[in-house]
């Protein structure tokens, strides 16, 4: 009896979740990185609340961007190193479906964790509590988009020995529109303005990336696995 596409997606997601719970450090390390990077800014600039509130959107988003990059690096590499990636590719399901499942699992772990930690760091940057929901919504869209971009980058660099610098070099320029919309949505939320505009743009970007990135990432993976 063959396994349906939906069944395969479910199995891959379950596999990723179990692997991650066996090795929680790989989930926690990017979050620690996010916390530490966010802490650097008040120390470097000023602990003054008004200053912190002004820089909070940039700090939160740059932190999210960098820690997502850190998390995404092992997305295909771990499986490529022990040979399980080949088995996934040869499982009789389309590579695009496999990439979609792996990226969703990755976002469910690292993206959602980051979204949940963000209010804590926002509070530390004296962001008013009323804006937390909007910040979390914008980060949820942003981290999903970043997971897709990261999947492309991770697929392109999977065969490289020192891929992490290369990954940043590839993904960060592509993520700049995301940073612009995300930081702007956060900024408006903090100042009590309507964040609908940038949030819609963020949503559109997320949708667009989710549509095209799986194909790019699977094409990249096919090349680097050859």
């Amino acid at each position: 009896m063959n396994v349906s596409t939906a069944g395969a997606v479910q199995i891959i997601i379950r596999r990723e979740l179990r692997l991650s719970f066996r090795r929680p450090d790989q989930l926690i390390q990017p979050l620690m990185f996010f916390l530490i990077v966010t802490t650097l800014f008040p120390l470097a600039l000023s602990p003054q609340l008004s200053v912190l509130r002004d820089i909070a959107p940039g700090v939160l988003w740059v932190g999210a961007l960098l820690s997502s990059l850190l998390a995404v690096e092992g997305m295909f590499r771990a499986d490529a190193d022990d040979g399980t990636l080949e088995q996934l590719v040869l499982s009789g399901h389309s590579l695009t479906v496999i990439v979609i499942a792996k990226t969703c699992a990755h976002w469910l772990l690292s993206g959602v964790a980051l979204v949940l930690v963000a209010p804590v760091m926002a509070a530390a940057l004296s962001v008013p509590a009323e804006s937390f929901w909007l910040i979390m919504a914008s980060l949820a869209l942003g981290t999903l988009t970043l997971s897709w971009l990261g999947a492309i980058g991770a697929a392109l660099t999977v065969g490289l020995k020192r891929g992490s610098v290369m990954l940043s070099l590839i993904v960060l320029p592509l993520a700049m529109p995301l940073l612009i919309f995300g930081a702007s949505a956060t900024d408006r939320a903090i100042h009590g303005d309507s964040a609908a505009g940038p949030l819609y743009l963020l949503g559109a970007l997320c949708l667009f990336t989710s549509t095209l990135a799986p194909f790019a990432a699977s094409a990249a993976l096919r090349i680097t696995m050859e």
Partner: peptide, 24 residues
């Protein structure tokens, strides 16, 4: 392999160029 990955990245980039332009 370098050729083909660079080609994929260039295509991804060219899709992104208008988005980058308008977002900036």
């Amino acid at each position: 392999r370098g050729d083909r990955t660079a080609a994929v990245l260039a295509i991804v980039g060219v899709v992104n160029v208008p988005i980058i332009h308008y977002s900036v």
